[in-house]
Amino acid sequence: MDPKNDSRSKRYSAPSHRLRNIIFAVITVIVLVIGLFAWQAIHNTKGALDKSYAGAGLKKSRDVSDVIKSGRPISILLYGTDTGELGRTYRGRTDSMMLLLINPKTEKTTLISLARDAMVSIVGYENTFPQKLNAAYAYGATATSIKTVESFLNIPIDYYALVNMGGLSNMVNQVGGISVKSPIDFTYSQETAHDYGPNLYRFHKDSTKFEHSDDNGKTWSASRATMDGDAALAFSRMRYDDPNGDYGRQQRQRLVLEGLIKKSANISNLLNDKFMSTISKNVRTDLTFGDMTTMASKYIKAKNNIVTEHMQGVGESYPDAEGNNVSYEVIPQHEKQRVTDLARKALGLQAAKTGLPYGGEVPANLSGIATSLRPAGDNNANETTTPKTTQ
């Protein structure tokens, strides 16, 4: 299916049960956890991991084989899809995007949520501007996603991991559930995407305890402190009642990810046939078995110090070809520079200028529109030359 044949309004309309942002990373990180923290046991799972391998389809911006063998910090672009099984023909959009930066020298892992609605010019498809960052995969698959993120932030992407988010619930269940402290009070039903309906969950601020109701809140279960897969999804999905909107949801999703990483440290919870079968069906990555075993010996301590961040944008709308207003996040250059500085420092790279305002170059006939959509006073909004990446 050609994404050009689908209007932006249709491509970006919210499905009723969409999993957002960091949810997909939970599944991906388990793959990485196996590679990082289970050197001996991983040999028993090589066959399943090999099934998850798929090349990125482009020449990387640096020699990733040398990077990982020498134990230098690495970057992994994590993203998830919302269009069904990984074997499908239509690529679809990526529902969630995140940078995973692992630095074995500082023994720190940095997770940066990327704004899926960030307004960009997709590399190789600049004439379709404006687009959302998560549309890059629909146009050109993994290679285009990597190129666009690299151009947007001026950082190298070493590897990728693509996840079918349908397997998340099983992942959480197979590690015995996770315990997460909620930053806010809220009630949420995945069936209605609101604070009422069947399969209702109630979470409490500054507490790991929650309750469940099957009768729209008339009666509640006893409090529990360990989320199963369904509870974790409910905790991660709620958006509209969060005072911080999508950014608040990203925070809760990062908490889920951290909780799962901690629980996954007990590798005996992970290494079973059913679990590995789920991994092979729901994950695609260009990390090879050899890469993972190298990571196991050189990057293991980075799991003990996890730092989470996100990219903050400014809400903007622009009509699509049919005249329907589409909501975007326009990322100011100073905010992009902050994220670039953070990422490059985490990767042990020299400081450098962030990428073009929209990633790819904007065609001359659309430059006026591009400039008008920048936040007031945004610096370097009129740049047209891609900065040279310093590795």
Rank of each mutant, 00 (worst) to 15 (best):
M1W: 14
K4M: 12
A14W: 04
S16P: 13
L19E: 00
I22C: 15
V26L: 02
L36P: 13
W39F: 12
Q40Y: 11
T45E: 15
A54V: 11
D63L: 01
I74H: 10
L78F: 09
L78I: 14
G80Y: 02
D82Y: 04
L86M: 04
G87I: 07
R88I: 03
Y90H: 06
T94S: 11
S96M: 11
L99H: 04
P104N: 04
T106M: 12
E107F: 06
K108T: 00
T110R: 03
I112K: 11
L114G: 09
A115E: 01
D117I: 10
I122W: 08
T128K: 07
T128Q: 03
F129R: 11
K132A: 08
L133D: 00
A135E: 05
A135D: 09
Y137D: 08
Y137T: 05
A138K: 02
A141P: 00
S145W: 05
Y159T: 02
L162S: 09
L168W: 13
N170R: 00
G177H: 03
I178V: 10
Y188I: 15
D206K: 15
T208G: 08
T208Q: 13
K209H: 12
F210K: 01
E211C: 13
E211V: 13
S213L: 00
K218C: 14
K218W: 11
K218E: 13
A222K: 10
D228L: 08
G229Y: 01
G229C: 08
A232E: 14
A232C: 13
A234C: 09
R239N: 05
D242R: 05
D246G: 05
Q251L: 15
K262T: 06
K262I: 01
N266S: 11
F275G: 02
S277L: 03
T278H: 13
T278E: 15
S280D: 06
V283T: 03
D291K: 07
A296I: 07
S297Y: 12
H310T: 06
S317L: 05
D320H: 04
E322N: 01
N325M: 02
K336H: 01
V339W: 10
R344F: 07
K345S: 05
A351Y: 08
K353D: 02
G355H: 02
Y358M: 00
G359S: 07
I369S: 05
T371W: 03
G377F: 02
N380R: 08
N380Y: 06
A381N: 09
E383A: 06
P387L: 08
T389P: 15
T389C: 13
